[in-house]
């Protein structure tokens, strides 16, 4: 393992840095450590929050001291292994590309001198890694965008981008999980809600999941949207 640096984040947070780079290997240490911490169920720990290369743990200092927590986390850290295997989910996310649901698709195609079909094919091909969830409820920070699609943000951000919009910003791609202002280039939309506050799992994606986009027709979009509304849509998850 490359590094294990423990630092406070305020007086109720403890942050472990596992290597200051964005890479699937370091990120897998983050998730591994997160699982070890959750399994250990240490009294006083309130939240375990993975990010790209850091794991942050929120705790109640009335129940557990910083030093004692640091000691226990360091001990768990010694168990991390690069060969550790665990089940990751791969979620297939249906997307209608272009049209009014993807108003910047043509711009991106022109920007890179590609055909619209090329852009769709290049975007839907990779298996993306959800490094972490953040920015807004259920928003996946994805890694794996093909460099050929890297495009600067819009010069004038939109006041409202609808939930489900799939976008590109620089070398990142992502899916808006709630309606919000935003400057990403929008290439399509998924009818599947990423944020479902009344479900037991309030978000479709969790840190560590894989994601693959699947290009669908307008008719398929409408029928999936309807199934989602009626609560009968089954997300395609491959283990």
């Amino acid at each position: 393992m490359s590094s294990f640096t423990v630092m406070p984040l305020g007086d109720k947070g403890i942050r472990i840095d596992l290597g200051n780079v964005i890479s699937p290997a370091i990120n897998s240490y983050v998730h591994q450590l997160g699982e070890l911490v959750e399994k250990r169920s240490i009294a006083g720990i309130e939240e375990v929050v993975p990010a790209y290369s850091t794991l942050t743990i929120y705790y109640n200092p009335i129940i557990i001291s910083y030093e004692s927590l640091k000691l226990q986390l360091t001990e768990l850290g010694s168990k991390l292994s690069p060969s550790a295997k665990w089940k990751r989910r791969k979620i297939i996310l249906p997307v209608f590309y272009g049209g009014i649901l993807g108003p910047d698709l043509e711009y991106i195609a022109r920007y890179h001198s590609l055909s619209i079909d090329d852009v769709i094919q290049i975007h839907a091909k990779p298996v993306y890694l959800t490094y972490m969830i953040g920015f807004s409820p259920g928003f996946p920070y994805l890694g794996g965008l093909d460099k050929r699609l890297a495009t600067p943000r819009r010069s004038n951000p939109r006041k409202k981008v609808l939930a489900g919009s799939v976008g590109i910003a620089g070398s990142q791609t992502g899916v808006y999980s709630i309606d919000s202002p935003g400057g990403w280039q929008i290439i399509g939309r998924t009818p599947v809600p990423l944020f479902r506050p009344n479900d037991k799992e309030p978000t479709l994606f969790q840190a560590g999941d894989y994601l693959q986009f699947q290009s669908i027709t307008k008719e398929e979009y409408e029928s999936i949207a309807d199934e989602c509304l009626r609560g009968v849509y089954k997300t395609v998850i491959q283990l």
């Binding site: 984040l9 109720k12 947070g13 942050r15 200051n20 780079v21 964005i22 929050v49 972490m132 953040g134």
Partner: peptide, 10 residues
């Protein structure tokens, strides 16, 4: 810097 967790008062 690489995006990481923020908390109240950060």
């Amino acid at each position: 810097m690489i995006t990481d967790a923020v908390t109240e008062g950060s």
